[in-house]
């Protein structure tokens, strides 16, 4: 078993080619003067599974929303070198976003909810419903197409939310603490199912979490963040190969990476304000 330091120093080789998205000196200062995110440089290669890990208030959600284009950075650039751009030069990456809450339309069935992004694109009804049914089946919800969110459990609602994010076949899936509100058993199952879909499909994932264990279990790479101002303190690689299963959760390797990440997180919290 290698020492923690060795593990952290050697991220697994990134997939070759241009990064899917490149962040250069990205900062976010709110009108109140608060610096929410400071100086983030980050290359996210295609096919990556990256976690943004940090305490609450470290700007990890803000960073994710900037990548999604929901809020604009106050300085720095976010480039999508491999994505199509519109006439004004703005990147048009295919995004999927999963919020902490399922964020479903309560008046629409699971099928209509999953089909929503395609409906907004103007895809004809029969075609989008076929694709949405496929996405629902992919997340294990075949047979629940006509069910309304009210009649689904918390875990199932989150599955619908994931199906909706997947239905456009996105290049990148941005997830903002998606499983934080679920019980542990449901969370473990969704972790496994997410990994399985990711391996099959090969899209890129940026996963915001405050759980060391969740980030190590899922990711190839973890960006450990610190607060006030929010920044990336350190990057830690998780060299364990995929597929990862329940055996990985109990392995010594898993425990060792968790320790490394915990230490890095502890340092990040201790250094706050000093930098």
């Amino acid at each position: 078993m290698p020492e923690g330091g060795t593990l952290a120093g050697v991220p697994p080789p990134a997939p070759p080619g241009r990064p899917l998205v490149a962040l250069q000196g990205v900062e976010k200062r709110y009108a109140t003067g608060t610096l929410a995110v400071r100086g983030v440089n980050l290359d996210i290669p295609r096919g990556e599974f990256l976690s943004l890990l940090g305490p609450s208030g470290c700007g990890k959600s803000t960073l994710l929303r900037m990548i999604a284009g929901l809020i604009a950075p106050s300085s720095g650039t976010i480039d999508w070198p491999a994505s199509p751009h519109d006439a004004r030069g703005a990147a048009q990456p295919r995004l999927g976003f999963v919020f902490q809450e399922p964020t479903l339309l309560p008046w629409s069935s699971a099928l209509s909810n999953a089909a929503l992004p395609l409906k907004l694109e103007g895809m004809p009804r029969s075609e989008r419903e076929d694709r949405a049914a496929g996405a629902l089946a992919r997340v294990g919800l075949a047979g629940f197409e006509r069910t309304y969110p009210r009649a689904l459990s918390g875990g199932m609602r989150m599955r619908v939310s994931i199906a909706r994010a997947l239905v456009t076949r996105p290049d990148i899936l941005l997830m903002d603490e998606p499983f934080a509100a679920l019980d542990e058993i449901t969370r473990f199952r969704l972790n496994n199912d997410l990994l399985e879909i990711w391996q099959e499909t090969g899209f890129t994932v940026v996963f915001v979490t405050h759980s060391v264990f969740e980030s190590v279990y899922l990711s190839r790479r973890i960006a450990v963040m610190a607060a006030r101002p929010g920044r990336i303190e350190r990057e830690v690689g998780v060299p364990a190969p995929y597929p990862r299963g329940e055996a990985f959760r109990t392995s010594a390797e898993y425990a060792a990476v968790c320790r490394t990440v915990s230490l890095a997180l502890g340092e990040a919290i201790a250094h706050r304000g000093a930098a």
Partner: peptide
């Protein structure tokens, strides 16, 4: 309207009209 849903509609580049018809009006029902 749930502001996350508003963000979701922005993310998928929904027009004002789409946001009104598919999100705001049903939510106001």
């Amino acid at each position: 309207v749930d502001h996350n849903l508003v963000d979701l509609f922005r993310l998928y580049r929904a027009t004002r009209f789409q946001t009104l018809i598919f999100l705001r009006l049903p939510a106001a029902m």
